[in-house]
Design a protein around this nucleic acid. Sequence first.
DNA 1: TGACATAATTGGAACGTTCCAAATATTAAA
DNA 2: TTTAATATTTGGAACGTTCCAATTATGTCA
Lengths: 348, 348
Amino acid sequence: MTKARVTVIDIAKAAGVSKSTVSLVLQGSSLVNEGTRTKVNAVMRELGYVYNRGAANLRQAGAKSRIIGVVVNDLTNSFFAELAVGVDMVVQSAGFVQFLSNTSESIDRQREVVASMREHGISGLIVSPARATDAADFKPLVAAGIPVVVVVRNLPGAKVSSVVSDNQAGMMSAVKHLAELGHKRIAFLGGFPDTAVFDDRLAGYRSGMEAAGLDYHQDLVISSAPSRAGGVEAIGKAIGLADKPTAAVCFNDAVAFGVCDGLRARRLEPGSDFAVVGFDDVIEAQAAVPALTTVSVDPQGIGRRGAQLLLKQINAGKAEAETVTTAVRLVVRESCGARKSVKIETGL
Amino acid sequence: MTKARVTVIDIAKAAGVSKSTVSLVLQGSSLVNEGTRTKVNAVMRELGYVYNRGAANLRQAGAKSRIIGVVVNDLTNSFFAELAVGVDMVVQSAGFVQFLSNTSESIDRQREVVASMREHGISGLIVSPARATDAADFKPLVAAGIPVVVVVRNLPGAKVSSVVSDNQAGMMSAVKHLAELGHKRIAFLGGFPDTAVFDDRLAGYRSGMEAAGLDYHQDLVISSAPSRAGGVEAIGKAIGLADKPTAAVCFNDAVAFGVCDGLRARRLEPGSDFAVVGFDDVIEAQAAVPALTTVSVDPQGIGRRGAQLLLKQINAGKAEAETVTTAVRLVVRESCGARKSVKIETGL
DNA sequence: TGACATAATTGGAACGTTCCAAATATTAAA
DNA sequence: TTTAATATTTGGAACGTTCCAATTATGTCA
């Protein structure tokens, strides 16, 4: 029932050395004699000493708390959960811990959360910014010498590093695939036009159309909320067009699912009657009916990559902005009409 | 380019008051004059002051860091991601931040992570323990006066609070439903027998059988890994039985999906040829074919409940162990054979 | 006006660690 | 031995905050 916490001074007293020596063994200095080291360690174990990182951190001025802040916009989306796991993997094995917070797409919450993390002295920040985040929002952080890595969504104006998937190439390959299946009128459905990711994917769509020798028609680009409901809405508009499309690439998988719903509501079967391709390859894509053809990105890989980049910058002391794009690949399943049979995927 | 960080002393100097006064306004004390308060706040904003929680924490001895540690065993499982979001919600709105870590079911990693959190001075811990966690593992924490709340899986021996779903009632209702559909031989498939959750669910199965006036046969209980692959394995054994079952309740949804796979591999259609019911209601359950009948637990609710309990204990200063069980409900879809039609769920 | 209560403010001394410069112990070389 | 080098150890003085006791300013009442 000893109430007071055990400090280095207690250890020092019990081991018959000075607090400085204890501090030295704490940081594994080679200066200290082997005998003393083992004795001190033994005493620590015996008294149940717990290192106080807060105090240490206070002394080592601007130095490192070994805390990494991770901010995601939607943790319920398995894409971001995977990403967080990727970050945690490398962060943890580097002896850091992660502060994880969820903004639910709220900029206010994002601001609060980042401020709070800063008060706790994070050594770096990985953030998948909420929609419409101001590029200047992270200015104070980098000004204070805290490295920031933006993932998934990039922040055009901000002078920070970023790790994003190759949205452009992904869309291009999706369009190419549909064109090879014989489609001529291919729509681009869903997504909010005010985001950088939207721009990238749309650009990929345009180049894909061009590369396939197809015309780009503005009315085939129909934006909407990047959700299932948005997909339903977008396909509704697409079907209403005078010159109907026969296929669509979607902003993401959620939109693609909504598009399938909307098709069926009109007695059209996704896959056979209308080809649809998604983006992200969320976990449900494989199990859905029809299984979704989609562009697979590796969220865990993005997380790992981002964390590595951040750690590099933390160790380097100073960090210049660097941009990494991770590869994506088209996964052909059923919703594009290329494969008709239902394959049962067995086992884990 | 001012390198040094801004401290209360800088603020004090610039505002023409003492550091003590600045500290007072920092903690919103009513002692300080309204005029001084506004001036000090203005100066803070102007100089870009960032509160140093580490330092504050150091002074306020055992007091509170406002950090909550959250440890889950598998964040890639959307169940736990939802749980973390639930925790984050209440923790954040109470002005705390969450340290989240993933153990991937590794006890070693769990130990490391908890130790690290302790060094950082967490004010409380919410943990979904890795399999085979020793009940004594959290002893030091509670001895140090740090409240611990165990969620999802309970730790029989440990004297800590816990929030678990009502596994027993859930299984009972699943069995009751199948019995009402006319099934007599109902199997219990999947799960590792060395866990408390398994025991609870199995107990629910037994009482359910009894309540329905059905015999309990030991050979109808087939354990396996709580995964899709485990489900395939378990249904294989069940089908091989002399007196075959016609329905099964599964340890969780992953097992249930595996059971469906295994059935189809034997040309049996889940739902019409064999009834299967899962547990958890993971996000894929609804979209699967056939849609999975399952016992729905609310992971986000568990997270919220756990966080509330923890905060209560933190505020109370001392915490006695308390156990909360959250309600569950059976969601009837197609895999139990009760509904044949494919319903398309539209919109968000 | 003096005497007293009340409202605001304030200078140290902590908190548990790391760093520095300096002291001491040990060993090797002469 | 003595000296020089090397290996260990060690007291403060920080770090940025909060707390305490004590001080000063302001207001109230005879």
